[in-house]
Amino acid sequence: MSWLRRHLLLFAAVAVLLYMLIPNVVVAVFSFNDPVGRYNYTWTEFSTRAWTNPCGPQGLCDSLGLSLRIGLIASLIATVFGTMIAFALGRYRFRARSGTNLLIFMPMATPEVVMGSSLLTLFLMMGVSSGGLAITIAHIMFCVSFVVVAVKARVATLDPRLEEAAADLGANPPQTFLRITLPLAAPGILAGALLAFSLSFDDYIITNFNASPSSITFPMYVWGAAQRGAPVQVNVIGTVMFIAALAIVLVSQLLTSRRRRAAA
């Protein structure tokens, strides 16, 4: 009994982790399903057909490519903008500071459905046609704030004396920025960029408001497929993404810890 009590917290933690991970397991398992009918919701029999032909369903891989392209462009631009703002906030004193903070905070406090619909009204009024460009513009908009937060958290922990030391050792301001500030802020910038990419790649609601029939992103494809019955290949791609990302994280962790050990 006391053993149970002592490990109660552990059981709770593991249970919540399971709650979080079970859908991923289900997605992976059902990527090997061979469903009867259109809906891949109940288990029928084992098959690797979807894995051997991942681009089988029409439009699936096109939508994946579009999402990757939009994700890359949007996260790149949002990262540049967001990093610049984060440095201004973290390194300078200026008027309009609280206004800037508010402007950064607002998109995070606004439901996606409001942002998506309001952009639609703007584009309608300006006569901008829906499609890839409109989607990219929208994604940059909602990603900037998250990049600012990620980078600012890192910039705030940077010791300003390191920059002073660089200046003291003869580095001019651009050199100081390139050799000291930027490398030290890099983890925050990278985290911001990754977050921006995953937000963009995974966005359905805002995208849906600004998409045209010729600009179907991956989440839109999944949504549409869910109405008609999702092909098993969707599970394949979900599983591949999951495993690839997990592998990247684990390998990078392994490398950093090994490098640390080697250097010690």
Binding site: L17, P23, V27, F30, D202, V222, A245, L246
Partner: peptide, 26 residues
């Protein structure tokens, strides 16, 4: 490892994961 597992679900499209709940709760 636990932190990786916490953010791991992010790596699969949330629409796909939400659809998986249809299977789980069926």
């Amino acid at each position: 490892l636990m932190l990786v597992l916490v953010v791991a679900p992010f790596f699969t499209s949330f629409l796909i994961r939400t659809l998986a709940w249809r299977t789980i709760l069926s």
